[in-house]
Design a binder for these strands. Structure first.
Lengths: 249, 249
DNA sequence: GACGCTCCTTCCGCTCAGTGGAAGAAGAGT
DNA sequence: ACTCTTCTTCCACTGAGCGGAAGGAGCGTC
């Protein structure tokens, strides 16, 4: 059992997540698995440093200092910088929710997002992870992932909606098509009422990211969206190839 | 002298800043003021948890986990949310780099940014701080800051480029004009080849932020840019006034 | 190919920082 | 006035953390 002081402090920070953005001391202690007195002292130190802040209502939230540190993280920073203007253009021409994602292990990690006006149920948030087999960007990344990754993901196709593809053979077929046609689509596989298209972003020969879009319905405008995405992805790729340091562990 | 384990771990994280995004173990130990062996152990723990990551070259950088945590921080989240659509619109109509900044102590803190394609040397990054006297948003925030803040900033006008305003009297005169005319400008005062315009964002009577724009040249289009900025700033202000919780310590 | 330099990793016995049970304070319902 | 919950403070015991020192691992120099 991890009993080092540092691991305890980190356990406190780790108690926060997307659903728990603010926590009381007691919650914090419980979630971190620490005695109240211990949590209290650690929380005090973290707060003094600026890692945590206290809301008017007494609950704790992640502090400004961590926010600033996080912005220094080289999480795809080269990629994000290169992509940023293209994402805006894409948003400008399509007014759809636009995503930039990379593969992180067996999941998709969203590194950038622009939210559209249109009320489509979008689950992703910047910094969140989703399964690969049920998202547009995920299918692209999976299609170009190393064989072993693909195999492991195929073992565990959890059902999310009634339309989620859960048969390995069918998904494999889809992935082959992604490679052949250069784009992937999903239809309400992650959340009802949301469809998506995505294309790979290449730097040289390797696919470093996926660029995707979420819309309520695909049928009519598919070709237009795909070509808009491809233009943007190509632009990002060209910018990247100029840049020597693309972060990818 | 901070000798608690937690404070040491935090000191290690604190060793990173805008100019030092990746550090060797030795640098880290030196900057955090810790013996090498101690730093080594702490760094190991931080890395295991994901607070730090190791680059191929052996240097340490802020890890993905901290990045994710930072995204949960409620830093100006009300303000940023309110501003986001207006920033997009602004970018859409002007295609210039657009900034949203607040005052943090004696510096400008950039809380949001949209980067344009245009190759203008832009120094600011989201989460970074810059001096107030050499940036467009800074001058706006300074113009409306409490007297004491203004005085303290005026004591220390460091020169950055050949055009930086370093005479207190001249800056004061500029600030008076900002208040009178409702916008500020800079001409290559922060970096050569970059000019900027900025306007205040008001919530009720108080100036809560500044909205700015960086362009290669101001002369011809100044009136157009100022009015675009003012429309956006006004919109943000109106959205904010509806919102009860604007984060400002 | 031996030397010197810098940077990283491991070891281990001493000791003081961290621990956490418990008691007290401060609210907020009822 | 009471109970229940959450927060804060206290303090004596003890094992987790400390860090000097020694041992790698590179790399450039002569």
């Amino acid at each position: 059992m991890g009993a080092t002081v540092t691991s305890r402090a980190l356990a406190i920070l780790g108690a926060f997540d997307g659903e728990h953005r603010s926590l009381s001391l007691t919650d914090l202690a419980r979630r971190a698995g620490l005695p109240l007195a211990t949590a209290h002292r650690l929380v005090g130190e973290l707060q003094r440093w600026g890692a945590l802040a206290r809301e008017p209502n007494g609950e704790y939230v992640i502090g400004r200092r961590i926010w600033q540190l996080g912005l220094l993280a080289p999480v795809q920073s080269g990629l994000r910088q290169a992509a940023s203007p293209f994402l805006h253009d894409l948003y400008g021409t399509t007014l759809a929710t636009v995503h930039l994602a990379v593969r992180d292990g067996l999941q998709v990690l969203y590194v950038e997002r622009l939210a559209g006006h249109v009320s489509v149920p979008v689950v992703s948030r910047v910094g969140s992870r989703l399964p690969m087999h049920a998202t547009g960007v995920g299918k692209v990344l999976l299609a170009y992932a190393p064989e072993e990754v693909r195999m492991e993901v195929l073992q565990n196709l959890t059902r999310i909606t009634a339309y989620t593809v859960t048969q390995p053979a069918r998904l494999l077929e889809q992935l082959r098509r992604v490679r052949a046609e250069g784009y992937s689509t999903t239809g309400e596989e992650m959340s009802l009422g949301a469809c998506s298209v995505a294309v790979p972003v290449r730097s040289g020969d390797t696919v470093v990211a996926a660029l995707g879009m979420v819309v309520p319905d695909l049928r009519r405008q598919l070709p237009r969206l795909v070509s808009a995405l491809q233009v943007a992805a190509h632009g990002i790729g060209r910018t990247l190839t100029g840049d020597p340091s693309i972060q990818w562990k």
